[in-house]
Amino acid sequence: MILEAVMLQVREGMEEEYEKTFKKASSIISKMKGYIHHELQRCIEQKGKYLLLIQWETLEDHTVGFRQSPDYQEWKALLHHFYDPSPTVEHFQRVDLS
Rank of each mutant, 00 (worst) to 15 (best):
Q46I: 14
H81K: 11
L78W: 04
S86P: 10
V95M: 11
M14F: 10
R42K: 11
M14I: 08
V64F: 06
L97R: 09
E90W: 02
Q73Y: 14
T58A: 01
L78C: 05
D84A: 10
E60C: 12
G65I: 00
T21S: 02
L79V: 02
Q46V: 13
F22V: 12
K20H: 08
V6A: 11
Y18C: 01
L52W: 07
D61N: 15
H81T: 03
R94E: 12
E45R: 15
F66V: 02
C43P: 07
M1A: 03
D71Y: 10
I2K: 09
E39R: 09
K49A: 10
E15K: 08
Q73H: 15
V89G: 01
I36L: 11
L79G: 02
Q73I: 11
Q73K: 15
A77P: 03
L53G: 08
H81S: 12
I44A: 15
M32Y: 03
L3S: 03
W56P: 12
V6T: 09
Y18E: 04
L52R: 08
E19H: 05
T63L: 13
I36T: 02
F82L: 05
K23N: 12
L51D: 10
T58G: 00
Q41P: 05
D71L: 15
V10N: 07
Q46W: 07
M32E: 13
L53P: 06
V10I: 13
C43V: 06
S86M: 06
Y50F: 15
Q46R: 14
P70W: 00
L3H: 02
V89L: 08
H91L: 01
W75A: 03
Q93S: 14
A5N: 11
H91Q: 01
R67Y: 02
R67I: 05
A25N: 11
Q73V: 12
L3M: 06
D84W: 09
Q68P: 00
S69C: 03
S86N: 06
E39S: 10
E16H: 07
A77V: 01
C43N: 12
F22P: 08
E17D: 14
Q9S: 14
E74W: 04
K76Y: 13
L79M: 02
